[in-house]
Amino acid sequence: MIKRILVMSCALALPLAALADQPTVQVKPPELQGSRPLEKQTEAAVIRDYLQSWKSLRSAFDLNQPELLSPDFVGTAREKLAATIDQQAKLGIHTRYQDRTHDLQIVFYSPEGLSIQMIDNVGYDEQVLDHDKILATKRIETRYVVVLTPSDVRWSVRIFQAAAK
């Protein structure tokens, strides 16, 4: 009974929390392998665009709308995430992600300037729902390897992969 109350509380509380809660972001100084220097403006733009991509991911997975992934995700990352959202929709489930903490560090800026790799030790809540019924809720701490590539006006996530901690 207590568990059911807690689950219901969470079901009500999570959407509000998603609106109210902004993730805590820590950025470590870049530890670059690569010959290309990273300008402060580039670093700031990459981090800004990456954090924005989590917002898109949250909306896309909650609403089962893969089109919300653009333009934050491109290439393989977009294809994989969009395929998962389609699978969710067919199964009648949706997922709420709420990123709580990001501990970011840029580790590679390719010499030709066409990719930036970042490690993100991220903490997030994942809640899987069958329509409105909560199937599971879990807090996950994991390490993401992220590769972003430049498009016309922004950096877009091209590789987005949780790696073993």
Partner: peptide, 15 residues
């Protein structure tokens, strides 16, 4: 805080 506790409790349940 309450949400966090709730999540923690729910997360522990499957374990």
């Amino acid at each position: 805080m309450l949400i966090g506790l709730a999540l923690a409790a729910v997360s522990m349940a499957p374990a």
